[in-house]
Amino acid sequence: MEVLDFYADWCGPCQMMKPVVEEFKEAHPEVKVRAVNIDEEEELAAEYRVSSIPCLVVLKDGKEVNRSVGVMPLKKLEKLAEV
């Protein structure tokens, strides 16, 4: 299980997600969370067709199983990641 967290420094809602993602990482150390700065990793953002951020993509065995765009509280992120 892996979560890709597409963000950018200039994106306000992404700043809002930062503490939520931190809390998630602490509560679920078994899930790999990878922060992807879309300015630095344009290709990855394009590969996953990210059209709006913050965008969280949940991968299982490397395959996308879920995604969500926009801010959300911890409990919704947990639901998204099915943990």
Partner: peptide
Amino acid sequence: RPISYCATCDGALYK
């Protein structure tokens, strides 16, 4: 086509 309500959030995705 993607619809955005926040240019400062999503603008850079359309460089």
